[in-house]
Simulated scan of single mutants.
Amino acid sequence: MPVFVLPFPVIDPVALQIGPLAIKWYGLAYVAGLLGGWWYARKLVMADGLWGGRARPGADQLDDMLLFVALGVVLGGRLGFVLFYDLERYLARPQDIIAVWQGGMSFHGGLIGAATGLVLFARRRGVPVLSVFDLSAAVVPIGLFLGRIANFINAELWGRPAPDVPWAMVFPHAGPVPRHPSQLYEAFGEGLVLFLLLALIVRAGGFKRPGLVAGVFGMGYAVARIVAEFFREPDPQLGFLFGTGSGAGGGLTMGMLLSIPLFLAGLALVLRARRGPAQS
């Protein structure tokens, strides 16, 4: 047991209560992430110099794009959680699939849903799919950062035991053992670091190579997620898929497994983008 253990800053998960209506921080994080991404996307599509004459969605089309993404994230995230993380339970109680208020969303499922929505949007609007992917990839870390902060406020998805880490925390409902604040690790890696990396690539001409920004996002998120999974407690209904975890090492989790094809897909996009000449 470490000499110092940081107390968990207990924050009411309900941000605002209006009669029977409860507005939770988690829901606000989704809304803020979508709106923040929409605002940043407008700035990017209006900067002609970043694109080198490449076709892209217009600023007036981003409202439709936001709608397609939001529907894809919610539907894909929920179905992804059902299929990847708790299929046995939902086969026994299929009515719980629509009970989204009980929690349960998968990033990888949400990504598949969002990508499907973006493909439909691109075909409907007649813009290149890779342009839509690149634009979306540049703004996604905003939502990831806010979502992981909301996970921390909800005291969920906590980390593995960390008896020798001075910044370990004792989370509500996680027993008396101090644990890694893995939600904050993910907010830092998947959110802040990835956002800054993609912003630098965009400023260096990344949009001029179709698929480059989306590919770097896929690879960057996969690496950040796999690293974070070494510090995050696996989902109780799954545990470790292979091996066993001890402290911050060992054991393969579902989050790691799902990130491997994402990394490979991102690598394929990066290699494709580098083969073609940059537009100018």
Rank of each mutant, 00 (worst) to 15 (best):
A114D: 09
A115P: 00
G117V: 06
G117D: 06
V119S: 05
V119G: 02
R125T: 11
R125W: 12
G126M: 13
V127M: 10
V127H: 05
V129F: 14
L130A: 12
L130W: 10
V132C: 13
V132S: 12
V132M: 08
F133H: 06
D134K: 03
L135W: 02
L135A: 01
S136L: 13
A137G: 02
A138I: 04
V139D: 07
V139S: 08
V139G: 01
V140P: 00
I142A: 03
G143A: 08
F145W: 14
I149F: 05
A150F: 02
A150K: 01
N154D: 14
N154A: 12
N154L: 13
L157T: 02
L157V: 14
W158V: 01
G159Y: 06
G159N: 09
R160V: 10
A162R: 00
P163W: 05
P163I: 07
V165G: 05
V165I: 15
P166L: 12
A168S: 15
A168K: 07
M169Q: 14
V170G: 07
F171V: 11
P172E: 03
P172C: 06
H173T: 12
H173I: 04
A174P: 02
G175K: 09
G175H: 06
P176W: 01
V177T: 15
V177F: 08
V177Q: 15
R179W: 07
R179T: 04
R179A: 08
H180E: 08
P181W: 09
S182F: 01
S182R: 02
Q183M: 12
L184P: 02
E186P: 00
A187M: 11
F188I: 13
G189F: 15
G189A: 14
E190P: 05
L192T: 12
V193R: 09
L194A: 06
L194H: 00
L196C: 09
L197M: 15
L198W: 06
L200A: 15
L200K: 15
I201S: 03
R203Y: 04
A204L: 13
G205C: 10
F207P: 00
R209W: 00
R209F: 03
P210H: 07
V213K: 02
V213Q: 10
V213T: 11
V213A: 10
A214D: 10
A214G: 04
A214P: 03
G215V: 11
G215T: 09
G215H: 08
G215C: 09
V216D: 01
V216N: 04
F217Y: 15
F217I: 07
F217A: 13
F217W: 15
M219V: 14
G220I: 09
Y221V: 08
Y221I: 10
A222D: 01
A222C: 05
V223N: 03
A224V: 13
I226H: 02
I226K: 06
F231N: 01
F231W: 09
R232I: 03
P234W: 03
D235E: 15
D235I: 08
Q237F: 07
Q237T: 12
G239Q: 07
F240P: 01
F240G: 00
F240T: 11
L241E: 12
G243N: 07
T244F: 09
T244E: 14
S246N: 15
G247F: 03
